[in-house]
């Protein structure tokens, strides 16, 4: 049986798909990738599977047994096939006994394999939520784990994406105020939108706790609990914002001053403790426009995948397919 073998998982490696939706009413967190664009780039490169391994900081060391496997890693990181460096956003075929070493991740990266893994979904999804032990194998991936490979062994011919296919803007993180911005003073909202915050060491898949000036509440900061969506910025009594992310709890009782728009969640996933965070409020209409553009960008990734090689790399059609120009312009507006 072919299997991807983990020799070193790095600090944290889990299997993620697009998320376990429909069960938040039962307290089940969707989980899913922290960096959706990086995830979609990896799975598109791998040929369209719907799941990947989410890696953290150091991507670890992987090998294969029982036959070859084609691997895609995104966003652009340092990937070595034995001693040989692999071009960014380019697939690599690993033969039994060969090693793939991944480093230099923008905090998180995705390792997808052609054909996907032959592991059973739990409650309709392969996404791992470690705190509730949902998703195979019920814990973070560890050295010695064997991930059975689905599908046939790969045919010859590597694929690639343009180097900046998974690039995000580096501006302020865009938010829509609410749902509970009326629980804050005008000064509190101004603080959120003008200060530079820092990511603290309490930053994981569940959420990012920020350090910086206190965001002022208008009154009581204990609410009767209600639902929490991904990107919610809740502010507990000490005034320090917490951004709730993929592994968040489904309900909570602190006021939520604003919500990070979906297209900018990946910016947070690429930040580590000490990194600065600034916020910028945009209108709901603009947020919806950005969300639609982002959905289109994700959907076009598959069309932008081509055979590895210079002529295709530089093709203007592929850049158009990616709508990279659109993404960059809209982000800097």
């Amino acid at each position: 049986m072919r299997a991807l073998v983990c020799l070193d998982p790095g600090p944290l490696a889990t299997i993620q798909d697009r998320g376990r939706f429909g069960l938040q009413r039962f307290g089940v967190t969707p989980a899913g990738p922290m960096d959706r664009l990086g995830f979609e780039a990896a799975v598109a490169l791998a040929g369209g599977t719907d799941h990947a391994i989410e890696l953290t900081l150091m991507g670890g060391v992987w090998t294969v047994e029982g036959g070859p496997v084609r691997i895609a890693v995104a966003p652009a990181v340092s990937v070595r096939h034995g001693a040989q460096p692999i071009a960014p956003l380019t697939t690599v075929t690993l033969q039994p006994g060969e090693r793939l070493t991944i480093s230099g991740l923008p905090v998180r990266g995705y390792l997808a394999v052609e054909g996907g893994f032959d592991i059973a979904p739990v409650l309709g999804s392969r996404a791992q939520h470690l705190r509730s032990k949902l998703g195979w194998p019920g814990r973070a991936l560890a050295a010695g784990d064997r991930l059975p490979l689905a599908g046939p062994p790969p045919h010859p011919g590597e694929r690639c994406l343009p180097p900046d296919a998974a690039a995000l803007h580096d501006g302020a993180i865009r938010v829509v105020l609410g749902p509970q911005d009326d629980h804050f003073t005008a000064a509190g909202i101004a603080t959120l939108l003008s200060a530079t915050f820092q990511v603290t060491v309490e930053a994981d898949r569940m959420g990012y706790r920020l350090d910086g000036p206190a965001v002022e509440h208008a009154g009581d900061y204990n609410l009767v609990s209600d639902g929490i969506t991904i990107g919610s910025i809740q502010v507990p009594g000490n005034g320090r914002p917490i951004i709730l992310l993929a592994d968040r709890q489904s309900t909570g009782g602190y006021p939520k001053i604003a919500t990070v728009i979906g297209p900018d969640l990946g910016l947070l996933a690429r930040k580590k403790p000490g990194d600065p965070v600034r916020f910028r409020a945009i209108s709901l209409a603009d947020a919806e426009g950005e969300a639609q553009r982002f959905a289109t960008r994700l959907a076009r990734l598959a069309d932008a995948v081509g055979p590895a090689g210079d002529s295709w790399d530089r093709s203007s059609e592929r850049l158009l397919a990616l709508s990279l120009i659109d993404g960059v312009v809209s982000a800097s507006r």
């Binding site: 939706f21 009413r25 009767v224 209600d226 639902g227 969506t229 489904s250 309900t251 919806e288 969300a291």
Partner: peptide, 22 residues
């Protein structure tokens, strides 16, 4: 519509912004 989350006092309505709008 993706899913709804009923709570004490509100309903959180989650949707796919690529397929619908506020």
């Amino acid at each position: 519509l993706v899913e709804c989350v009923p709570t004490y006092r509100s309903l959180l309505v989650v949707f796919d912004p690529g397929r619908t709008s506020h």
